[in-house]
Amino acid sequence: MDYKQDFAKEVYEKVDSGAEIKVCMQCGVCASTCPLREHMKYSPRKIWTLIRAGRRQEVLTSPDIMLCTSCYTCKVRCPRGIPVIDVMHGLASYALSQGITPREETAKFGSVFWAGIYGTGRVDEAIVPIQYCLKDGLVAGLKKSLGMMDIGLSLMKAKRLKPKMFIPPNIAIPPSHKIKGIKELQRMLDKAKALGARKEG
């Protein structure tokens, strides 16, 4: 494969914090640090190499750029001070702006999560999972939620999820419990999005 610099330049210019990866010296601390490393095909270090080698398609379609849970360990440990998670989120966002969805499920969850924040100014822990499951339709949604039952039970055991959260009026669909000043928040978010789009454009 040829080395081509076009994609690297695209990332430096258009991806949030993209230029920071220039100083990566490929030590691999991010890869050995990442708790999700075993679920990745490409570690952060490898993603940077692919960018430098000009592999646009491989990078932007890689599910790994959407796998980050924002634990920040890599950013803390990077000896060159690269904000690895910012670049990862930047890459994911940039892929979406280019019409590519690197990881379907994460994108779906993200859109539900984001709609909740944008619509009400808060995240409802009962509503988000329901909406996420129902996004594929009722039957598929039920199947999905049954498939995730063990997670649900674990959350209940840890008291992060309580049955009463699902009993009206604690729950309302569509969500109606908005924060004060939701309009102002929406204006802020709109502005941020416009600024981001200008960079990615």
Binding site: M1, D2, Y3, Q26, R45, K46, T49, L50, A53
Partner: peptide, 11 residues
Amino acid sequence: DVLLGEDVSLE
């Protein structure tokens, strides 16, 4: 390129 794990060429 041992970090990419591939043979590469600079043209």
